[in-house]
Design a protein around this nucleic acid. Sequence first.
RNA 1: GCCUUUGUGGCGGAACGGUAGACGCGGCAGACUCAAAAUCUGCUACUCGCAAGGGUGUGGGGGUUCGAGUCCCUCCAGGGGCACCA
Length: 925
Amino acid sequence: MLGCICRCFSISSTYQILSGIAPALDQHRRLMADTGKIASSPLKDPPAMTAETVTETARERYNAAERERHWQSVWEQRETFKASTKNKGPKCYVLEMFPYPSGRIHMGHVRNYALGDVFARHKRSKGFNVLHPMGWDAFGMPAENAAMEKKTHPGKWTYENIAAMKRQLKSMGLSLDWSREFATCDVAYYHQQQRLFLAMYAKGLAYQGVGKVNWDPVDQTVLANEQVIDGRGWRSGAVVEQREMPSWYFRITKYADELLEALNTLDRWPEKVRVMQANWIGRSEGLLMKYQLSGATLPKPKKWSELEVFTTRADTIFGGSFCALSPGHPLTFELAKKNKALQAFIEECGRGGTSAEDLAKAEKLGFDTGIMAAHPLIPDQQIPVYVANFVLMGYGTGAIFGCPAHDQRDYDFAAKYGLKITAVVIPTDENPATYHLPGKSYDGPGAIANSGFLDGMSIDAAKAEVATQLEALKKGKRRTMYRLRDWGLSRQRYWGCPIPIIHCDDCGVQAVPDDQLPVKLPEDVTFDVPGNPLARHPTWKHCACPKCGKPAVRETETMDTFVDSSWYFARFTAPNAATPTDLKSAKYWLPVDQYIGGIEHAILHLLYSRFFARAMIATKHMPSSIKEPFGGLFTQGMVTHETYKSRNGAWLLPGEVRFEGEGDVRRGFEIANGAAVEIGQIEKMSKSKKNLVDPDDIIASYGADCARWFVLSDSPPDRDVIWTEAGVAGASRFIQRVWRLTEESADRAAPVKSPRPATFDAEAIELRRSAHKALNKVAVSIEALRFNVAVAQIYEFASAIQAALPKSGAGHAWALREAAEFLVHMVGPMMPHLGEECWARLGYNTLLADQRWPTVEQALLVDDTITIAVQVNGKRRDELTIARTAANADVEAAALKLEAVVRAMEGKPIRKVIVVPQRIVNVVV
RNA sequence: GCCUUUGUGGCGGAACGGUAGACGCGGCAGACUCAAAAUCUGCUACUCGCAAGGGUGUGGGGGUUCGAGUCCCUCCAGGGGCACCA
């Protein structure tokens, strides 16, 4: 690739940016004057060129790296992409998930932002008023880790990373409105976030409660679930303890039903994500019911005389053979006070792995309390009460009734402890008298049996009957349960948004008054010992109680960084507002019309943002018209690459390997020492596997357009794309091809704004047809985010222009100009720098970015004659070219005359002929 | 285990229930060249056949239909999510 540079002409060293865009012909002239430079090239002497020969022989290659900088600076100076509510056209808010400022962008970013940029640029060209902002999700642990390792301040580290990544993003040529940029660690941003928090606190949407947390005893901090690996802290390796600690929560469960129901309105979200969220919220309809307890071991106070359980299978109540309490149930604790063996059992349940896999494999364990429970509808039927390890305190009431016949967990438990297993739901095709369970529980459909007055009912009818009866007896209540828990937002960390709360011994929990906001992070902190730097800071937490004025202490916890990203999309609509949002701007821009990001955020970030939108409406920081924050969601696939391993087992970077051969005989060798390299699996680009390609390197050697074009080609955007050198080279070739086609077209085409000729010959019409068809398909594909299909259309159309170039005839020059301009329009959203360059080369001194997408002439989208397939008995035998408007009878007659059709009919009589106009003929014999 | 996706040439992938394999990569051949590179033009699912022309093909099996990659049932394989949620 680098070999071609010797033939790249320097075409813009004297190019005038300030005067706008110099006509490309000027470049051409300057180019001619530069030929001397080329002759002195040390590598090879190109043939001497004159203005005449250059057109026909060696045209200059497009120098991407150099031209891209130029167009980026033009866009910047003209503020081309600055959004305003005052601009014309319907609004369109395009947003990609903002990055964490790790310091360098990776190919995943390139793909994400290229996808969004194509969409945003296309919408602009269609006349929309586009908002396309960018910012930084800048709080988080990596900054603290870096501070520990590099003895620096998390803020310094973060802002340096932001500067480096901003430069990289700018080199991609994204149509971003940088004037709205902010980082979530900016005081101005987290100031408003503290206001939001306090508004939610005032409404009861944020509260302090006690809950279980993962506590790392070595690092002295709470860990998020993701930071617990195989029951150990990811940093310290210490066994993580479950601790009850006071924590701050958002009352997301208040909106559980709304968040679930509204999923149905998100018709521009992937089904997959909606299903994942629905499962996460996990609504189930059931019945709360009360069992009367008795037995010598039962504590005397009346509150223990009843046990409330939750079930979704009230229809199986007659099959219940035991009740089970969670080890965390209050009655369990009460009983354990006088029972050493039970204490030991509870401890045993607390051990064991916390990973999902461990839990699934864990054996069912039970402890017989000696207490008996009375069936709420048949009081003389008594069943034993156990404490069981598989009953969760966090769901329902922390107690269940077990029906072994129709629940596998209960079945396992009953089998182990010798409890009765009675089938009460009989599959429809079985005889209740002879039916036996197949050695496991049965949870399919059927009719109720062995259940007294419920016998013969359907499952649903029995559920309803039991609920009605228990409600009448005041022993039951219909209830909807959710799997969703309130969102614990406390983190014992420094680099996050301080929770603006003050604890006073006398007055209790106090909100920091608005005039004392923001609660700023102290600068002078140390990271040399584990624990929360805010908690051990000598002065920061000490303050006066806002109510009584006595000494008090600040909350030293900071907010989960997911809080920061739960409302940033709203802040972008008015990034400098003195309140969290400006309602007018928010109402104009929101919801986000197209949101693009990784599937890994399918649940948490997207659910939290949906909650925040509702909480912000409740606290009047969001117009009530905004029901959902993201109207359209697109989840893009990953960027993957081959992996390479040296003979000693070390991973190698792609740049450390050279290759010989292709396909089956392709071999890799270590450049450093020539040793053979093992070519491994294609995997997600990752630091650990070293299968990384640095966007900076690609942009420097091939240009941003090339990187963009590559990640948009071939693979559908929602699937993984495999990064290959060959693919990059292919993309690079196409860039040169578009440039060459534009040059050659510009030379042969009619001048800018030539009047449309009165007549076109057949070939000119053909070219126009393909131009309008391609333009239409590309627009449709881009709007459907099917960029790989758009790319294929563009390739196809480029070939059509290539074929048409040498033609002449009536209207040809005009049609060629139209075609070349269309090609530039199509390429523009994907390769914007090349687009501008070609636009200038076609003779314009305006910006392509400011041009409207051309209007398609509908008449050119349909052909006069069409070719349709002719089948005999559903098998294609021939094809028929006929006038598009031909009558069915004529089509049928013509089809039946085809030799191949006659032959395939083998002289049999025709039973039926199906003619689908403009599609197909099928002869049935 | 449950939910959810995906399965099409050597590869990435196209295809409102209507000519399967668009387009790209790779490969083969040709043009240009002293030669190479670059570029351009063809061909390229498998299979029988010299050809003309057949046959088979979208993970397997069944079904609906004049017609199925596409719809339905079922099985297999890969990816993702949830995972003792009563």
